[in-house]
Design a protein around this nucleic acid. Structure first.
Lengths: 229, 229
DNA sequence: CGTTCGCTTGATATCTATCAAATCCTGTGG
DNA sequence: CCACAGGATTTGATAGATATCAAGCGAACG
């Protein structure tokens, strides 16, 4: 748990080009945020924050994968989101965290105190825009998932998940699965057995190749026919 | 479709007290927005905007109920959100609307052009905060629904919906249902028949009283035991 | 008074969860 | 490097919840 001033390059990972960011003033915002952020590392399955604990800061993934989950008193668990490099999380302004955040694999994150962020907004408009846009991005992701959970079959859910992962990594042929089957089930609202059965079925149909933490997309056309929209 | 300068009181409906807002600078923000907004009326089932059309403005409900829905090519429909008095919608910055917005019952909304809103942000920091907070509120609502759609039974979904409506109207004994059963089903990810069956079952158990557009919550304790969390 | 649309109920089919067991990785220690 | 332990994954059998198909009911409206 140490602090350094070299986070900007990672913050840009996968985003718009540097000149574009500079024009919009986003670079200023990123540099300003850098000054108030703390770089933290967490190892696999380590808790970043717990559901129910106080807020007071928000985070951005530098590398690795984070899961936001909620455990109910009766044991049912639900994963609200997987956050990858570049994603912000814990933005909620509620007094209590409604989800816990855990490292799916070893991760590096930046933590930004909310109070200092608010002060930064006073001086730097681009920070305000950046935060709003981050919230809107999270909102769009959540609404996409509402469609998936609301009206899709198990096969459609799994396929759209694979396509999403493939798109995230900019690799049309592979989907890396840093999380376990149990996490996938809790993310898609189906049981781990159903996740396995669907993957096996797709494998038998020759559409994918399966290994525990990596799926090869053999027939993208077929997959998109199942999982698009 | 006319314009007037008396929207502020409605905008405050159900929110913090006026002195509190004035201190935070939110009143300034609301007045500034008022100047760029247009007040619009829509009648039952009329479309406010269509999925796929260009964005360019965002909205706030003054009175009535709006549904954000998506219709898939195979006929499956999904309702992302019901928006009531005070709720913002259409905030997404995507080029295309990912949902259509329709009036569930007669509604009055304010429409704010995005370009003018951006200019306003330059002058007025409170506007930026207001928009971010609105986005965060939408995000929190979407994430609550992820839990419902992901791991809850039909009965739990319906009950949590009734409790949510009751909380919205600040009436512990009643839930008004401006929308039809079909909308409720598409919102909760279950069929209209299941919605009916669950309501009938709860009625037979003496927990609620049912009429097409209003439910009386007879045994709140029992309902909360089913639908909380 | 009949029509229509939305709501409700019934019978059956289907999908997914649950329970159970076998198999496969993965990491660890000898 | 190999054997082993323990967890994760996969597969199978069955149960249960909800969807689907079908029909009846009831209120609003011309």
């Amino acid at each position: 748990m140490y602090r350094q001033l070299t986070g900007v390059p990672q913050l840009l990972h996968g985003g718009p080009s540097i000149p574009e960011i500079a024009r919009s003033g986003q670079l200023d915002a990123l540099i300003a945020l850098e000054a108030i952020g703390t770089r933290l590392r967490f190892s696999r399955n380590q808790e970043i924050y717990a559901q129910g604990e106080g807020g007071g800061s928000w985070y951005k993934v530098i590398s690795g994968t984070v899961r936001l989950s909620k455990l109910r008193s009766d044991g049912r668990r639900n994963i609200a989101e997987f956050c990858f490099s570049g994603d912000g999380f814990g933005l909620d302004k509620a007094d209590e965290r409604s989800f816990s955040a855990e490292a799916v694999e070893d991760v590096t994150v930046m933590r930004y105190p909310s109070a200092a962020t608010e002060r930064l907004i006073e001086e730097n408009l681009a920070v305000a825009r950046l935060l709003r846009d981050m919230a809107l991005k999270c909102l769009a992701a959540a609404q996409r998932r509402l469609m998936i959970l609301g009206r899709m079959t198990a096969t459609e859910r799994v396929v759209s998940f694979l396509l999403e992962l493939s798109a995230r990594n900019d690799d049309a042929k592979h989907a890396e699965l840093p999380m376990c089957r149990c996490d996938i089930g809790d993310y898609l609202g189906i049981t781990i057995e159903t996740v396995c059965r669907v993957l096996s079925d797709l494998r038998r149909r020759g559409v994918i190749e399966v290994s525990p933490h990596s799926i090869t997309l053999l027939d993208r056309f077929a997959l998109e026919a199942i999982g698009e929209d």
